[in-house]
Design a protein around this nucleic acid. Sequence first.
DNA 1: AGGTCGACCTGGCAGC
DNA 2: TGCTGCCAGGTCGACC
Length: 268
Amino acid sequence: MPELPEVETIVRDLNKSLRSKTFSNVIVHDAFVLRQQQKDFIRRIKGQAISKITRRGKAVIVHLASGEFLIIQLMMTGQLIANGAKDLHTRITFNFSDGSRLLYNDQRRFGQLRVVAHLSEVNHFNILGPEPFSKDFNPSLMSEAFHKTIRPIKNVLLDHTFVAGIGNIYACEILFRSRLSPRRQARRISRTEVKAMHRNIIEVLEEAIVHRGSSMRNYRDGAGQKGRFNERLAVYSRQGLPCPRCQKPIQRITLAGRGTFYCGHCQK
DNA sequence: AGGTCGACCTGGCAGC
DNA sequence: TGCTGCCAGGTCGACC
């Protein structure tokens, strides 16, 4: 799925195009993506105005005038596209009273949608770590977490109870920028390296947001456009290509069951 | 208890 | 052309 920068881009787009619109109708083309009864889902959305749209980790939160929340977890291939053309992967069509609409597309159907009265009903939110841009996420918290584990640093970065929103692409890019091997044990990272890594996490995510995210296969922004940050990726999905820093070929290994890309020469 | 791995789905692509 | 196997941005639960 979209990781934090992609979801942030979608949320900013949708806030511009959808805020204060009212849902006139909801058409469920494929109830598989719902995490509650279809009738209940539709009843709680229909007639509601959108007060705002926010993000927590990689989840989109649509705040309804009723005080309830429409939670959308895009997972790997979910898309939220305003005024797009319906295709065979369109699972839900949200119509608005002004005649516009929002499509939920999802090729692999991993995504999940539900309406809740309280965010704590979504268990994922209860175990989710701090937002990377928040004050709660800082070098001392990182050091403390790193010290308690024997896992490789890549696995810790991907652990959403440690920090929210970082997925496979940005974990690889953050480690490249920090010159750290993805296999390095988290507890073996020095205080100085932790501080630099904290800066790099913020930097990489912010830059990716500026470039509207990375489009590999499926990611599209709220208007259905691709992001541009994938053109700037240093290592992700670039095995065999020269490292932008030292020109040695980028390697691919598997860590935490995921493809992991790094430069064995300048990441130690 | 911490950590790893497969399952959940669909489809694109490389290789034969 | 057509088949097989591998790969894909996330998350959860079973298992070691």
